[in-house]
Each structure stands twice: as structure tokens, then as C-alpha cells.
Design a protein around this nucleic acid. Structure first.
Lengths: 148, 148
DNA sequence: CTGCTAGTTAAAGTTAACTTCAACTCAAGG
DNA sequence: CCTTGAGTTGAAGTTAACTTTAACTAGCAG
């Protein structure tokens, strides 16, 4: 059971040591300590780091990533099935994000592309035809959660 | 030539007044002033705001958005052609982002999905087969710009 | 004129995700 | 034993994109 130093982890994962310490403080990865208080990582922590970076690319926050990682077993090395279960979640998130961007792209092409980018008429800006249905109310740009 | 107050702009764009002031400080939108120093917006500034929010959804930073908006004419209301020219840029960015996410999704399915998420063997983690080609060097997770 | 809502400013606060810094300690080679 | 490179800590700094606050002014109805 060979353990990795923080330097090893940084080199093999491409993630800075300061980030690895940060992830540990945030409860995303774990390390044991040597007698001299240095961190030693088990090999499977590398997989956690990989998972973290991938999820970040998908646009998931560290908070959500921590939550997902909490589904891994505490007292044994995660199995393939454990990881597969987690990845299913991101797969779904990814699908959603891709769909959103594709819709945005298609509408962009036919909408800003044509120069019509009008808050009154554009489906991109006023997606559910809110203006038409709600009459005088405020016309929201894009999707809901834009706070006022 | 009816001008809009900041309240009008906020209501019609769904963007907070504080954000509109911030955009102005950052040089993304412009307003004239009344005798009493209140902002008055021309109608086409709404289109700018729409453009800003759309670009943000695509993942573009305000810095880049400002740069893009700088291509609009200073001294006349932008035409459809002006907007179409700008949108072409985002269209391209969008395409790239979608492609990236699709690649990520496909690899996620076949890679984390299968539980193999291994830094040594996984194409997702080690995309260009760096390990194989470069021998002992550090193995970077995902795409390049991960600083050390 | 009185009130009230809408608008103004500069400055400070917020959040995420880290990095940088200063001041040390550990581990290993010679 | 000495030196050097790797590791440790808490605290403060960084960046983007805003929001909040406090103290004040404008515009308009009655």
C-alpha cells in the first residue's frame, strides 16, 4: 500500500498543492499524516481529484461535488460500481447543459443572427411568450432566476 | 425619442438596477443624464443588455463582452447587420463549448461510467495520451491550463 | 408645501475557488 | 551536522460580478 505525498498528487493530477490542501479543508478529499505531520494520500484519492476536475468542467460547484462524493463509502476503497453510480448524475447534468446550449445556439442563429434581437418579439429573450400571455408585466431576459 | 429610466430598464430586462449601474461603470452600456443627474437610456441599450446576458449564458466574461460590444458603432443606433456580425462570434464560441461538453459526455459515459476512471489509462483524464508519448512526465488532468 | 417613490454616489461587503505569504518543520543526501 | 528541497500552518490577498448600505437628491401627486 504505497502512499503519495502532496507533491506526487500535484504532479500526477495537475492540480496545485494549494488547491489540494483547499480541497481537504473543504472535505472533498482526505489524507492521513506521517509522524512528522505530512500528508500521505492513498492512491484512490487521485480518482477523487479527477472526478472533481471533471465535474467542475461540467459546471458543477464544489459544494455539489462534495455532496455527490458523500455517496462514496467511507471505510473502503470505492469500487467501479460506486463511481459509475456517481457519474450517472453528472451525465444527466451534462445532457441538460448541452441541450440548453444547443437551444441557445439555434435561437442565436435565427434571432440575434437576423438582427431582430428585440425584447418584444424575440423568443430567445422572451422564451415562453410571457409578454403575450401576461400582458404588461416585466419581460424577463432568458431563464427565470435573474434576481431583481 | 422616448428614453427609459433605470427602473424601466430593470423591469424590462430583468436585470437589477445595481447591475445596470455596474455595467455602465464597466463600459458595457451607456446612458445620458437628465438635468437632475438621473440616467436615461435609449431603447437600443435594452438590446445591449440582452446581448450581455445571452453572452454570459454562453460562458463569456464581461471583459470579452465589452470587447465584442466595442465593435458596435459609437455614433449611431446599431443596425441588424451590426448585431449579426457580433453574434457570429458567439455562435462560434458556443459551437466550441458544445463540442467540448459532448466529448466530455461521451467519454464520461464510457469512462467514468465503466468505473475505470484511472489516471494511467483513461483518455478522458489523459486526453492526448501524454503518458504514453512523454514517458515519465506529469500527467495532466483534462485540458492544459491548470497551473501548478 | 408635504410626502413619497425613484434615483444618485462612494465605499464596503459577498461568494467561490483558489493563491500567496511568512514563518516554520521535516526528510534525506553528503 | 549542514544544507536543501519538500511540506506545514493560519491569515491575508485575488478575481469576477455583483449587492448592500448610508446618506442624499429628484420628481411628482395631492
Amino acid at each position: 500500500m504505497e502512499l503519495l505525498t502532496i507533491g506526487d498528487m500535484a504532479a500526477r493530477s495537475g492540480v496545485a498543492q494549494s488547491a489540494l490542501r483547499y480541497y481537504e479543508r473543504e472535505g472533498l478529499i482526505r489524507a492521513t499524516r506521517t509522524g512528522g505531520n505530512q500528508r500521505r494520500y492513498e492512491r484512490h484519492e487521485l480518482r477523487r481529484v479527477a472526478f472533481i476536475r471533471i465535474a467542475q468542467q461540467v459546471g458543477v460547484s464544489l459544494d455539489e461535488i462534495r455532496e455527490a462524493l458523500a455517496a462514496l463509502p467511507e471505510n473502503r476503497t470505492p469500487t467501479k460500481a460506486d463511481w459509475a453510480r456517481l457519474s450517472a448524475r453528472w451525465r444527466h447534468t451534462l445532457d441538460e447543459r448541452i441541450t440548453m446550449l444547443e437551444r441557445l445556439r439555434d435561437q442565436l442563429t435565427g434571432c440575434i443572427g437576423c438582427g431582430c434581437l428585440s425584447l418584444q418579439r424575440c423568443r430567445l429573450i422572451n422564451p415562453e411568450d410571457r409578454l403575450a400571455r401576461l400582458g404588461e408585466g416585466p419581460q424577463l431576459i432568458l431563464n427565470p432566476p435573474l434576481r431583481q
